[in-house]
């Protein structure tokens, strides 16, 4: 029953959705992986982005991707604000671990409920002229609805990768992750650097939100479904490793897609999370950890 063609299509579908998963996870790789801030509210920022994109699309007819990109400065500001608050309340006092976690959990709930009160529980979705098209390469069909999010996800990963490794601020961020005292001695304020990094992480959420709503309908509590997945990818890829995040996202996407095709989609999630549990037990630094 299982043909090569089917397998090939499953792998491609997995890679496509994996690129999108990478976009959702990048923010976590930066905030949690590099800065060690347990930002479990990230998925809800993605949902927030998706709703802004929806609102702009429904009222002004703006293109989802364009809105997502235009919103990044706003989300950057949001991220900087959240980090400043977090720093003032927790990190400065050295109480970040447990209380910081709870802080973000609370934040997640607040944003979710505010969206619920504003937009209700109905699913929202957007229109874009390129959504319905499919290109065919040989026997493999690629839907634009999934191709575009994948390409944007990969692009975002590359951009972030080069920013972190080639620019002054990018290197400062990496420096903060390794040794903030040394950085301070060199006359760089680690808090400012961290705030920028956190802002950057949250900024990716507006684009990821646009991708999310391109792929399918969105409702306020959808973010919860992505908490586990996104953290799984971040850990799998090795915390703080941007390239690793992309590879792990592809792996998870393909694992889910293959399971869905071969054994039935019901088991897809268990397979990817089972893999995560194994990785945690055997190689806790992730596949590409430092």
């Amino acid at each position: 029953m299982v043909s090569v063609n089917l397998l090939l299509n499953a792998v491609v579908a997995g890679l496509l959705v994996g690129g999108f998963y990478a976009a959702v996870t990048l923010g976590i790789s930066v905030t949690f992986g590099l800065l060690e801030v347990v930002n479990i509210a990230h998925p809800v920022f993605v949902i927030l982005g998706a709703y802004f994109v929806y609102a702009a699309n429904a009222t002004l007819g703006l293109d989802p991707l364009l809105t997502g990109a235009l919103l990044t400065p706003l989300f950057f500001g949001l991220g900087v604000g959240v980090y400043r608050l977090y720093y003032a309340c927790f990190e400065r006092k050295g109480e970040e671990a447990l209380r910081g976690l709870v802080f973000f959990f609370g934040l997640l709930f607040i944003v979710e409920v505010l969206l619920l009160l504003r937009y209700g529980v109905d699913y929202r979705l957007v229109e874009a002229p390129y959504l319905g098209k499919t290109i065919t390469l040989g026997s493999v069909g690629i839907a634009y609805r999934l191709l575009i999010p994948c390409l944007v996800g990969v692009g975002l990963t590359l951009a972030l990768y080069f920013f972190l490794s080639k620019t002054y601020y990018g290197r400062a961020i990496q420096g903060v992750a390794q040794d903030s005292l040394a950085l301070r001695l060199m006359g760089v304020n680690p808090v400012t650097v961290k705030a920028i990094a956190f802002g950057l992480g949250v900024a990716t959420a507006s684009l990821a939100g646009a991708l999310l709503i391109l792929i399918g309908p969105v409702e306020p509590s959808l973010g919860r479904e992505y908490i586990g997945r996104a953290f799984a990818i971040a850990v799998l890829g090795g915390l703080g490793s941007i390239g690793g995040t992309l590879v792990a996202a592809f792996l998870l996407g393909v694992a889910e897609s293959l399971t869905a095709t071969l054994y039935g989609p019901s088991w897809a999630l268990a397979v990817s999370f089972g893999a995560l549990l194994l990785v945690l037990a055997l190689r806790p630094s992730g596949l590409f950890g430092r």
Partner: peptide
Amino acid sequence: NTYPPATADFTPVVRAIQAT
């Protein structure tokens, strides 16, 4: 077959159905 909530992409499922 059944699929779990939060399935992001249904193309693998639809292809598997198509193959039957």
